[in-house]
């Protein structure tokens, strides 16, 4: 069973065992608008949680994507290089950014779960 956690910067991490799949939330893709480019990290690169790991661009905005948890990148979604629109169409599915091997599963406790994130979104408008 996988569990999904969220950051206040609207990244999500879906955890399967010791691997987390990272992307931006549906709310984030709507706010950004049509995504035109995603800059992905290199496989093997290690990040500390909160470090900039990727960049997502729409026509009028560029936004940093931060690693929600610490760890090394084990895979990136290179399909986004040719079809960045997948982020808009399916942010939490085909629009994932990269997979990271969790260095410290304890960090997940500091992130929001689904209901906490939904409550957080309500505070934004």
């Amino acid at each position: 069973m996988s569990e999904v956690r969220y950051t206040k910067d609207h990244e999500y991490v879906r955890v399967d065992g010791d691997t987390g799949t990272v992307g931006i939330t549906d709310y984030a893709q709507k706010t950004l608008g049509d995504v035109v480019f995603v800059e992905l990290p290199e496989v093997g690169k290690a990040f500390v949680s909160g470090e900039q790991a990727a960049v997502v661009e729409s026509v009028k905005a560029a936004s940093e994507v931060y690693a929600p948890v610490s760890g090394a990148v084990v895979a990136v979604n290179s399909a986004l290089e040719t079809s960045p629109g997948a982020v808009n169409e399916d942010a939490t599915g085909a629009g994932w950014f990269f997979r990271i091997k969790l260095a410290n599963a304890g960090e997940l406790g500091g992130l929001m779960d689904e209901s906490a994130y939904q409550a957080f979104l309500k505070t934004l408008d």
Partner: peptide, 12 residues
């Protein structure tokens, strides 16, 4: 490709 430019990217 104006996201490369100063008016969006500022110091980056």
């Amino acid at each position: 490709l104006s996201t490369r430019e100063q008016h969006i990217r500022r110091e980056k």
